[in-house]
């Protein structure tokens, strides 16, 4: 019973984390048809920025609770600066090329950003454990969980709901859905598709950075975290169906629970289980759970 509960809680926490990272990736794919490997670097940049800025805040003796605000600002900072630079400075010259070529362009970008991170922060790990401990912890049936996990869960739910609300209830969101369906027709109807690409990419980049920011207090921030995370995000996005937001949510849930279950029962198969889910889903549903042929992609 207790282990079942532990699997459920661990799974939900892990799912939340996965969803935050995958949401931006699937959104960018849905709108721009780019499977962005550099999403992993943006995640890492978020983590590093948060570690540095919040670390600075704390070391200057300001109220520790304020570090959460700094964390949020870090994500926005990374997204707002790098999103437009990458989209306007590089990606827009590549539109219309093969999807695989676009993957390679973002792979090149990933390699570049990996070293940019090393040049700025060096290769030694950074730690930002204070926010993790700050919120205290709760106990359930003898299992102790830091309250920080609620923040993760809340962020995931908030991200999912606000994106859904944006896409379905706002004028801009509805236009975005039109762009997702067919960018050529949208452009023919006078929609400024380029503007939406810019907005989408910036939003996606911010979400990637947010993922990194929220993860920073739980890990040691060091080189390689981007590469590790991007394949997991790929697994979620592909399992969910490329470009599908509800798909990503469901996939994050499935993968999160499966991995938590595996870690508790057969720890040796930890990573293996994630990719086993990915392969299995692709075998039976070649285009993922919510395949892109369906009317609504996001």
């Amino acid at each position: 019973m207790i282990s079942f509960l532990a699997i459920l809680i661990d799974g939900l926490i892990y799912s939340s984390w996965l969803f935050i990272i995958a949401a931006g990736l699937t959104l960018i794919y849905g709108v721009m048809k780019i499977l962005n490997i550099a999403h992993g670097s943006l995640y890492a940049l978020g983590a590093y920025t948060a570690a540095s800025l919040s670390g600075l805040w704390l070391s200057m003796g300001f109220a520790p609770i304020g570090s959460f605000v700094i964390m949020l600002l870090s994500a926005i900072l990374v997204g707002i600066i790098l999103g437009p630079i990458i989209e306007r400075g590089l990606l827009r010259f590549m539109y219309g090329r093969d999807e695989i070529v676009l993957v390679l362009v973002t792979y090149a970008l990933f390699l570049i950003l990996e070293d940019v991170i090393k040049l700025i922060w060096g290769v030694n790990p950074y730690y930002l454990y204070q926010p993790y401990a700050l919120l205290g912890s709760f106990e359930i049936l003898g299992l102790t969980y830091p309250n920080y996990n609620f923040l993760l869960l809340g962020s995931a739910v908030f991200t999912g709901l606000s994106l859904t609300w944006f896409l379905q209830k706002t004028q801009q969101g509805k236009i975005l859905i039109a762009v997702i369906h067919d960018s050529e027709i949208a452009a023919a109807q006078g929609i400024n598709v380029e503007k939406f690409y810019l907005i989408t990419f910036t939003l996606g980049a911010t979400l990637a950075a947010l993922g990194g920011v929220l993860t920073a207090p739980m890990i040691s921030v060091q080189p390689g975290i981007g590469a590790e995370t991007i394949v997991l995000a790929f697994a979620v996005v592909v399992v969910g169906g490329l470009g599908s937001l509800p798909g990503a949510a469901l996939a994050a849930l499935v993968i999160g629970l499966v991995r938590a279950g595996t870690v508790h029962i057969i720890p040796e198969l930890d990573l293996f289980s994630v990719y086993l889910v990915m392969a299995t889903v692709l075998i039976f549903r070649p285009k993922g759970l919510f395949s892109s042929q369906e009317e609504r992609k996001i």
Binding site: F234, P267, L269, F272, Y275, M278
Partner: peptide, 21 residues
Amino acid sequence: DIFFAMLSLAFSMILYGLLSK
């Protein structure tokens, strides 16, 4: 296309997951 790329990726990561443990 991308689905071939991703399914190949999944299989290689399965092997990675197995070997690294």
